[in-house]
Amino acid sequence: AEDTGLRVELAEEDDYSNSSLALRLWVEDPKKLKGKHKDNEAIEFSFNLETDTPEEVAYEMVKSGFFHESDSKAVAKSIRDRVTLIKKIREKKPAGC
């Protein structure tokens, strides 16, 4: 969250086999965001590692009114950083471990 002001975490334990993850995103540093947003609300959503893209989820969050268009890049980056980390961890651990 240090550079986007947003934090994305796993909302449920990753079982390393399912391509769909439950993620949770919230604003940790409101000063880093440009547009209007809700400060103390966490948004939980599912993300499919094989079919979804961070940009698409960010766009839907903007469309749903959670964030302003000017912050969609920061939202997408936060999701992408977390997804990249999860993929790296999965590569290290065999499925179902």
């Binding site: 934090r7 919230w26 940790e28 540093d29 409101p30 000063k31 809700k38 400060d39 103390n40 609300e41 966490a42 948004i43 939980e44 959503f45 599912s46 989820v57 839907e60 969050m61 469309k63 749903s64 959670f66």
Partner: peptide, 27 residues
Amino acid sequence: SSLTQVVHSAGRRFIVSPVPESRLRES
């Protein structure tokens, strides 16, 4: 719970709930 709101967008479901006090960093 009444504090949780579900929003659908393009077939995706967003569940909105308050961030636990413990997770909010002093801003």
